[in-house]
């Protein structure tokens, strides 16, 4: 089970969500599907606005395999000028 950490910016969007949780997922695609099942609209939101870090490293590739002890951080994308 990957451990999922939601940053405050994500929590602000999904007030019912807990800061941390455990999700069974082989990769980030599946993880987002699982989150979407728990929190309505989180899937499309992740598609549009989320960025992920797995074990402290940015994860642009959602097909990256998650290990049983992976820690997944969900943050919002930051706009630059």
């Amino acid at each position: 089970m990957a451990r999922v950490l939601l940053t405050p910016a994500v929590l602000a969007e999904f007030p019912g969500a807990a800061e941390t949780g455990a999700v069974e997922a082989v990769n980030l695609f599946q993880l987002v599907r699982e989150l979407d099942a728990r929190f309505p609209c989180m899937g499309p939101w992740c598609d549009a606005r989320a960025a992920f870090a797995v074990d402290g490293v940015s994860a642009p590739d959602w097909s990256q395999r998650l290990g049983p002890d992976s820690e997944v951080l969900i943050i919002t994308r930051i706009a630059g000028g």
């Binding site: 598609d47 549009a48 606005r49 994308r77 706009a79 630059g80």
Partner: peptide, 9 residues
């Protein structure tokens, strides 16, 4: 609707 606007949203 929201959409990906590149790096910003």
């Amino acid at each position: 609707l929201t959409m990906a606007l590149g790096e910003s949203s």
